[in-house]
Design a protein around this nucleic acid. Structure first.
Lengths: 146, 146
DNA sequence: CTCCTTTAGTTACCTAGGTAACTATTTTTC
DNA sequence: GAAAAATAGTTACCTAGGTAACTAAAGGAG
């Protein structure tokens, strides 16, 4: 089993997916990282930046940048919390209004991205990746204990 | 089936793998993109930049940058071809000498990265990803025909 | 032979994500 | 209660990869 090949396939798949997403999102002046934030906020409602970056498994600095750009575009608001360190992030009315259009476009693109790859195989793939990811996490946890 | 989740898993896996690779490579002043070039050159021998970027499925500009850095570090040489547009890339003696050490370190890290994820599942995963990638490629080909 | 098109590589500029070092607020500890 | 440690977020700087626009060399069509 050539691990190089396996790693390369994962990497390439990741880039292809992001590329597809970006081509559809650019029509609306958005990029994939921004979309993922908007998507999470729509599902979960108002979250702190910490919660957002944990949920999306991204470090704090990139999250700060993505949010700042969304603020500049008027799609997101930073609300200071009682604890003056935290900032709650929420969608603006503008974003709520535009969201359905974005979602529609993204869903269509997702359809294209996955076309020719059966539902059954999608599920198998999902299961395998989840398993691998949790194995890695388990591992990192053990490393940190030392 | 939530495609968002599937895409997110691929993306996260890709980042985790690169992170692992970088932590081991940084001891030798290398980064994952550079390593992948060195690896291909070791396997295939002298290649043009075009061939390299096609093989690694990366656009020409990032490849130019990665190679320029490797040249600066003295690990790679650009040899002009008969066709004066092309540049052949080959490992230097220095790189050939260091290669086994790098390889050893990378192999150990790969071991760690995959630990807890069975050989059988690795194969299943590889098969599924290859299938998906080729479905995407098939698609893109059709799009371009239009 | 000349002009047009294609091709290999580079440059400039963009997003995505990472680490290290920092500020400003809690929380903990003594 | 004051000093120390932890936490949320930001800033600066790095790699990885993408597109668009460019240069220079090769090929083709007339």
């Amino acid at each position: 089993m050539e691990l190089h090949v396996l790693f390369h396939s994962v990497h390439q798949l990741s880039r292809q997916i992001m590329k597809c997403n970006n081509t559809v999102l650019q029509e609306y002046g958005l990029y994939s990282a921004q979309w993922s934030v908007l998507y999470v906020l729509k599902q979960r409602g108002r979250l702190t930046q910490k919660e957002l970056s944990e949920y999306l498994a991204v470090e704090a600095p990139p999250m700060t940048r993505t949010i700042q750009r969304l603020v500049k575009q008027g799609y997101v608001r930073q609300v200071p919390g009682q604890d003056k360190r935290v900032k709650f992030i929420e969608l603006t009315e503008l974003a709520e209004r535009e969201y359905p259009v974005w979602e529609q476009a993204v869903l269509e693109m997702n359809e294209k991205t996955i076309r020719g790859f059966s539902k059954e195989h999608q599920q198998q793939l999902q299961k395998l990746m989840t398993e691998w990811l949790s194995a890695m996490e388990r591992h990192q946890g053990e490393e940190e204990k030392k």
